[in-house]
């Protein structure tokens, strides 16, 4: 097919998100972060909102959409489904009661691509047993896909981004490096002359990076949420458009602690590709899309958490720890690099 989803946008996936600084400034100016009533248990800066509707029962809402990262529409739809639902699963809630789609595309984009994106999104939601109950579709110069999800769960099982405590150990469930791998994906499809720029990295490494990135983005974080229901997790956040450091800064500030990262868990080939493209992977600032969940857990529960990850055959890696402090995140110089299994 000649129409390429990734070719008609200039930023891809979560890279189209505003920076935390820009978003914070907008919300403050619009007074969006003021005046919550006592039933709002979490609002802006949480991965999804949490509103109490009865004793020990809350409704969680999230909305997420972005530009395409891949040219294959069904894969793009799956990535969108994974990314939206992750915002609920990250709070440790496994029941998503409904899903509304958000889609936009230009007039010259073939309808079959729009159908493909919806099909991928629908298949993902069906596999997670989530009903799609409606949505909204508009014309727009850039294709966009995503949606709004509504979760329901017991208040005492919800894990927030706040709550990390000094001494906690940090575990991440998906490797980093999506942006670099997907940049290689796009470059690989360019004219031969441009593709030559990838020649310093063996083809099999590039292929492995791309496949691992797509596998990660299309994998649901639901299993991680199920684990979080069983183990006492102090705090959690998914790692997406603000990058590892951005999301951890949020966790550190909300918990009034410092965070030290001494081990970067990465997609095979991502460090080499990041260096080639000038991406800030090794400083934890590279943007991720549909990334894993980072959990802060006490040392006493760390073994149980790892046993549960192993039981579920999940990928994971210990990446750092929490110390006393006031919101600072440090990625140590020359951190250990742990490369995920291909």
């Amino acid at each position: 097919m000649s129409y390429r989803l990734t070719k008609v946008v200039s930023v891809h996936g979560c890279s189209c998100k505003l920076s935390q600084y820009q978003l914070s400034s907008l919300l403050d100016k619009a007074c969006f972060t003021q005046g919550y009533n006592e039933n709002v248990l979490a609002g802006a800066w949480e991965n999804s909102s949490v509103v109490k509707i009865a004793d020990n029962l809350a409704v969680l809402n999230t909305l997420d959409f972005f530009t395409p990262l891949v040219d294959e529409p069904e894969i793009q739809g799956r990535i969108a489904g994974s990314n939206v639902t992750s915002d609920i699963y990250t709070l440790g809630i496994t029941d998503i009661a409904s899903f509304l789609t958000v889609m936009a595309y230009p007039e010259n984009m073939p309808d079959e691509l729009a159908v493909g994106m919806l099909k991928g999104l629908g298949d993902f939601c069906r596999e997670m047993n989530i009903p799609i109950v409606g949505g909204h579709t508009i014309r727009n110069p850039w294709p966009i896909i995503g949606g709004a999800a509504t979760g329901i769960g017991p208040i005492d099982k919800i894990v927030y981004t706040r709550g990390a405590q000094p001494g906690d150990r940090l575990f991440l469930t998906k490797p980093l490096g999506i942006a670099a791998a997907m940049a290689a994906y796009r470059l690989r499809k360019e004219e031969i002359e441009d593709k030559e720029l990838l020649s310093t990295i063996p083809t099999d490494i590039v292929e492995t990076a791309i496949n691992k990135a797509i596998q990660g983005m299309t994998s649901s974080n639901k299993l991680a949420a199920e684990v979080m229901q069983k183990i006492a997790i102090h705090a959690a956040t998914d790692i997406t458009g603000f990058g590892l450091k951005g999301h951890l800064t949020n966790m550190a500030k909300l918990g009034n602690v410092d965070i030290v990262i001494n081990n970067l868990y990465v997609i095979p080939g991502a460090p080499e590709l990041s260096e080639l493209f000038g991406y800030p992977l090794l400083t934890g600032e590279a943007k991720e899309t549909a990334g894993g969940i980072l959990m802060a857990v006490s040392p006493e529960h760390s073994d149980d958490l790892q046993s549960e990850f192993d039981k579920q055959k999940m990928s994971y890696c210990e990446v750092g720890h929490v110390t006393q402090g006031n919101g600072k995140v440090t990625i140590i110089n020359n951190p250990k690099i742990t490369v995920a299994e291909p």
Binding site: K7, S10, E190, L276, G278
Partner: peptide, 15 residues
């Protein structure tokens, strides 16, 4: 201008 990431870095490197 108008080049999508990672082309700006790639073209700089080549130039």
């Amino acid at each position: 201008k108008g080049k999508m990431c990672p082309m700006p870095v790639a073209l700089t490197k080549r130039k």
